[in-house]
Amino acid sequence: MAQATIGNSEFDRDTAVTRREPGVYEARVSAGWTVHGAANGGYLLALIGRALGDTLPHPHPFTITAHYLGATRPGPALVRTTAVRGGRGLSTGQASLCQTAPDGTETERVRVLASYGDLDALPADIRTTAKPPAIPPYEHCAGRNEGRDRGRDEGRDPVPDAAAALSERLDVRLDPATAGWAVGAPSGRGEMRAWFGLADGRDPDPLALLLAVDALPPTAFEMGLTGWVPTVELTAHVRRRPAPGPLRVCVVTRNLAGGYLEEDAEVWDTQDRLVAQSRQLARPVVKRAG
């Protein structure tokens, strides 16, 4: 099968928006990017980010924050955007994704505030202590289905895959050290590491990075918890345009308290560059494994 390209892939089609009038975009939330029947937060961020990119004078998201007000279900949606400020290097806008409730009223599902710029205009100077995550080679990391099959062979019950629709569209290869949850043997550490790509081979771009920061299994799984972990708020920083090829993603949780946890993510490209970062607050709706 021919490899999909940027602008001609399932991800591009399913995040497409059509301008109805200035500041109002029609969209269709695809069932292919859902978890427990609700659209994945990173996918929604990319969809809304595409509408903001059409509204604002700068092309790329630099920082984008979303508050998820309720579950977004597959089907028609409207994205309403407003340009807040325009500057030489950055422009700022806000957006809301809305759907029609059963009673016919328009209901806001996601609200976003973002600043956009031009990644290609950034200076090349880098001074950092950040290092790429240590992940085994791609071919030594198992896909989610492979891990589940191994768990069954070993007589252990794998965690039910509520993200089946989403995982079919991704090529996620988990570091075995953070994949014990998939075979019923979580490590107890709040960390997830993986190679990440789209299943159809489309290379990453700035919008795909917004998906990547929220596409790995929840770190709560490796802490011995199972179930849905919906995002309350997610902030992503896009640092550079990614090079072609699979990304390395590392997500860490240091504190699960009061029914909420944070997840800090880093995304690295094939040139060992830190291309995106994020932090989110999530609320596990979980039960203890076993």
Rank of each mutant, 00 (worst) to 15 (best):
M1Y: 02
Q3C: 09
G7W: 08
E10V: 12
D12N: 06
R20G: 00
H36R: 14
A38N: 12
G42K: 09
Y43P: 08
L44A: 08
L47P: 06
P59M: 06
T65V: 09
Y68T: 05
Y68P: 00
L69F: 05
P74N: 11
R80P: 01
R85Y: 07
G86D: 12
S91K: 05
A95Q: 02
S96A: 13
Q99I: 07
T100Q: 15
G104Q: 10
T107K: 14
E108N: 11
S115E: 09
A124I: 04
I126R: 15
T128C: 06
T129Q: 10
P133K: 08
A134E: 13
I135L: 12
H140Y: 07
G143L: 04
E146K: 08
E146P: 00
R148S: 01
G151N: 01
E154Y: 04
R156H: 14
L166G: 02
S167N: 13
R169E: 04
R169D: 00
L170V: 00
D171V: 04
D175S: 04
G184T: 05
G188C: 11
M192C: 13
R193A: 07
G197E: 05
A199M: 10
L211P: 06
V213R: 08
V213F: 09
A215Q: 08
A215F: 10
T226F: 07
V229T: 14
E233Y: 03
H237I: 05
V249L: 07
V251T: 15
G259T: 11
L261Q: 15
E262Q: 15
E263R: 14
E263I: 11
D264M: 11
D264N: 15
A265G: 15
E266Q: 15
E266V: 11
W268G: 09
D272M: 07
R273D: 02
R279T: 12
P284L: 12
V286Y: 13
